[in-house]
Amino acid sequence: MTSPETAGGGAGSDTVRTLLRMRATAGREHEFENAWRKAAEVISTVPGNIRQDLMRDPDLPREYVIVADWESRAALDAFGRSPRRDHLTTALRDLRDDADRHTYQILQTLAGREPAVRVLVTTTVPAGEEAVFEQAFLDVAAAMRGVPGHLREELLHEPGTPTYHLLAEWTSKAAFLDWVQDPRHTDRTRELLPYLNRGFSRRVFTIAARPP
């Protein structure tokens, strides 16, 4: 579990969050959601913007809350003063009946524990190369030791076929995706790349239950 000090906002953090409540014009809810999505895609490229969410009240489908996190109040204010902001939010103003906004400083964030996942990679190995492939797997598995979030690896073979399955367990999907984007990923898995470059499939599964 992530500690408050290392999560998205710690004590004394400059990060701020805005909550913008809007009531969409009756019958134009779908237009409102599309307009928000288009504006949010552009706002996500603005320096200082961290994330945005659009939420809707399930009991009052016209009631929306737009949540945005910014690195600092200064970054938020800079965007608020920019001509870009008025241009991006014009469509939303035309699709709402009323709105109010509040800005808060994020003092503490405590992330919940994500469920563990299994990653299944399936590939085929040409006849006669099985031993080389299996050794490459063992070498890569050894190089994976110590990677944050990585728990274990297994190599499965379908008897009588050229099909192999690489089964890995990770503490969370986020940990796995962080590793995929890590520049060291290619270096540590280099020995398997010739087999994967020929074609492979990858699926990610959440572990729903595990006996004690």
Rank of each mutant, 00 (worst) to 15 (best):
I50R: 13
V147K: 09
P83C: 09
L92M: 05
L60W: 11
E130W: 12
Y164T: 02
F137Q: 06
P148E: 02
H157A: 03
E41M: 03
D139M: 02
E154K: 09
R51I: 01
N197K: 15
S72W: 00
R202A: 10
G9I: 02
G128S: 06
W70I: 01
W179C: 00
H87G: 08
D57P: 05
R145D: 01
S44T: 06
E31K: 03
L156W: 13
N49P: 07
A142E: 08
L192H: 09
T109S: 15
E63I: 07
D69R: 12
M1A: 09
S172R: 01
T124R: 09
G149W: 10
D14N: 12
L138M: 15
W70P: 00
R23H: 11
G48R: 06
V117Q: 09
V42R: 12
F205C: 00
M1P: 13
R56Y: 01
G199Y: 05
A111K: 14
P194D: 02
E114F: 11
H157R: 09
P115L: 02
A209K: 05
L167Y: 03
D14R: 14
R198G: 13
L177W: 14
T90Q: 15
T15S: 10
A143H: 09
T189F: 09
R96H: 00
D139S: 10
L192W: 11
P58Y: 08
E153S: 15
E114A: 15
H150P: 02
E29G: 08
Q135Y: 03
V46T: 11
D53P: 04
T18N: 11
S3W: 06
H30Y: 04
D100Y: 14
G27K: 11
V119D: 04
R101Q: 08
D187C: 00
A131Y: 12
T45L: 12
D69M: 08
D100C: 06
G199H: 03
V121W: 00
D178Y: 07
T109E: 15
P83N: 10
D69V: 04
P194I: 00
A136V: 08
T123F: 06
V121F: 02
A168F: 03
L110F: 13
G27E: 11
D100Q: 13
L196W: 09
P47F: 05
D97Y: 00
